[in-house]
Amino acid sequence: MEAEELFDKHAAMVYNLALRLSGNPADAQDIAQDAFIKALRGLPGLRDAALAGTWLYRITMNVWKNRVRSEKRRAFWKTFSLDRGEEDGDEPPALQLASPEPPADKAMENADEKATLEKAMAALAPEDRAILLLREIDGRSYEEIAGITEIPLGTVKSRISRAREALRLRMGVLQNDNGT
């Protein structure tokens, strides 16, 4: 498989996986970029092109995990630092993603629906958001998701179920709050 082919086929999914894991577009681009650079270096050793997606998504997960680990270390030292920044709020902010078109009528409804989804997604754990993306968008089987995330199969099943249930409840509450 050629580098360009690998990128064209998987760029959208790798970026979105990184976006759901990190929760913000700037970090998502960094993670996706690092994941592709690592993958392209290892590409000559990839024996089975059919496994490229699984392999690439796992690299993306690992790049994200490594970043989280180093951020935790930084946060640990920041705790003891004299120039501490502001504390984070209890709830992570919803993704603020620009809409490509100005909302009107049907588009407005779509924009509301999307905003509600983003708010509900923000309450999920990063890995649950990633699992949901792999299932709903990429159509990965539970086995494949277990392989990519290195989470046991039974846990994948329960996390997908829990994530959907949480979204269902939260979206219901948010829609009621908005009077939709």
Binding site: L117, M121, E136, I137
Partner: peptide, 8 residues
């Protein structure tokens, strides 16, 4: 809804 809106 997730399928419709999740990809950026």
């Amino acid at each position: 809804i997730v399928k419709k809106h999740l990809m950026e």
